[in-house]
């Protein structure tokens, strides 16, 4: 079965369908994370005493993770630019680096979470509202990273065969996967100061 698609921009929207679809999906994602940011404000303004992120969280590790994500964002957009320049080898290289940064983010997150659980007494989502919202927001973000790795990994591996049969459509796919990945980066750009630094 072949799902109908457009490669060229449509005259009515000025976009190909996949791109409009991903932007609409990202709009729903804004609301998903927006709801949690709203819950965070509600929890924080509802009490007189809110712990500083540094009491529980590791700022140097999170700073490194921020650098990993912005680095992965630039390599992601470079992989798309490489396809625009018909350089498939560079596309593969930049995509591989993007995946390595993404895995690096997950490894650091694993160490962060492990340190919380190993603490005596353990820091759990049920410990207090700060840790509850921390695990909820960063956990949802980690799920988005894993989803991104799966899709980018597919286009690094088996999905990249499309470059030989339909390069324009493949380039479009990398562009819209990139949109998703930049959004995941963008969410972290706000999560980092809100949870760790304020």
């Amino acid at each position: 079965m072949d799902i109908p698609y457009t490669v060229k921009n449509r005259p009515d929207t000025g976009l190909y369908n996949g791109k409009l679809g991903v932007w609409l999906f990202l709009a729903s994602e804004v609301m998903l994370f927006g709801g949690l940011f709203s819950a965070y404000i509600f929890l924080r303004t509802g009490v007189d005493d809110w712990p500083a992120g540094t009491e529980y969280l590791d700022v140097p590790l999170a700073t490194l993770n921020t650098l990993f994500l912005i680095s992965s964002s630039v390599t992601m957009v470079m992989s798309w630019a490489s396809l625009k320049l018909n350089d498939f080898k560079k596309y593969k290289l930049y995509t591989l680096i993007t995946l390595l940064f993404a895995f690096g983010f997950l490894v650091i997150k694993y160490f962060e979470y492990s340190a919380k659980f190993a603490h005596n007494p353990p820091y759990l989502p049920s410990t207090n509202n700060f840790l509850g919202i921390y695990f909820t927001m960063t956990g949802l973000h980690v799920l988005h990273i894993i989803g991104g790795i799966l899709v980018i990994g597919y286009f690094y591996g088996p999905g990249s065969k499309m470059w030989n049969s339909d390069p324009e459509r493949f380039t479009n796919r990398i562009e819209i996967v990139g949109l998703y990945w930049h959004f995941v980066d963008l969410v972290w750009i706000f999560l980092f100061p809100v949870l760790y630094l304020l």
Binding site: G178, L186, F190, V194
Partner: peptide, 13 residues
């Protein structure tokens, strides 16, 4: 954070 977010949205996206 808003400046960083704007840069990502305007240039990378």
């Amino acid at each position: 954070a808003s400046i960083k977010g704007t840069l990502v949205a305007c240039y990378f996206m």
